[in-house]
């Protein structure tokens, strides 16, 4: 049960935006600007970072929904998201994706965990400053969203079907 009196009929973070409407415009703007930007990281890479960080934070509704969104962008690798969740990132990911997710993993532990060696590997894989910036920002953003949702004890009435339906809509139309 949620720690505060929110409308539990509204799915996901939308119930919190309905509870405190004044924060909805900047929160949605942040999602749109950062998660739907086509410059540098792909939309799929952005969603994979969101998924992996939410998974490490054990925020169930976040890692399921963003995992489903991410998977929509990797139709030729239908097991990618479940591989990342099952094996964390020790499996045979492409080097670029491994470098990005490894930075995100360190951010989830604490900003100071991001090492110069990780940055060097990223740069050796032609990952740009903007892509490093966005990876750290997305990982930090999901540490924020995960805490907001779990810190208020928000629960979900979603089923795998409703998650998939919402994810498809997000992948196609954005936030």
């Amino acid at each position: 049960m949620a720690h505060i009196n929110v409308d539990t009929n509204i799915p996901g973070m939308r119930s919190l935006l309905a509870y405190r409407p004044i924060i909805a415009p900047p929160l949605l703007a942040l999602m749109k600007v950062v998660m739907r930007s086509n410059e540098g990281l792909s939309l799929g890479e952005r969603e994979l970072i969101a998924t992996y960080v939410s998974f490490l934070n054990d925020c169930t509704s976040c890692h399921i929904i963003h995992g489903e969104v991410a998977q929509c962008f990797y139709k030729d690798a239908p097991e990618l998201v479940s591989q990342i969740k099952e094996n964390e990132i020790s499996n045979q990911l492409p080097p670029r994706l491994h470098a990005l997710l490894s930075i995100a993993e360190s951010v989830q532990k604490g900003g100071k965990h991001v090492s110069q060696a990780q940055i060097n590997i990223a740069k050796a894989n032609n990952i740009t400053d903007l892509e490093i910036h966005d990876s750290v920002l997305i990982a930090s953003m999901f540490c924020f969203f995960n805490r907001y949702i779990d810190g208020l004890g928000l629960t979900s009435n979603d089923t795998l079907e409703t998650y998939k339906e919402r994810a498809k809509n997000i992948a196609e139309n954005g936030y």
């Binding site: 720690h3 505060i4 009196n5 919190l16 509870y19 405190r20 924060i23 930075i103 360190s106 951010v107 604490g110 900003g111 100071k112 991001v114 490093i132 910036h133 750290v136 920002l137 990982a139 930090s140 953003m141 540490c143 924020f144 969203f145 805490r147 907001y148 810190g151 208020l152």
Partner: peptide, 26 residues
């Protein structure tokens, strides 16, 4: 109040974003 608890959780979460962003990029 519920709203104060909400805002406390939201502010605390927001500063986790800031702190990780600031230190994650050194």
């Amino acid at each position: 109040t519920d709203m104060e608890i909400h805002d406390t959780v939201l502010i605390a979460s927001l500063f986790c974003l800031y702190n990780k962003y600031v230190d994650g990029l050194a």
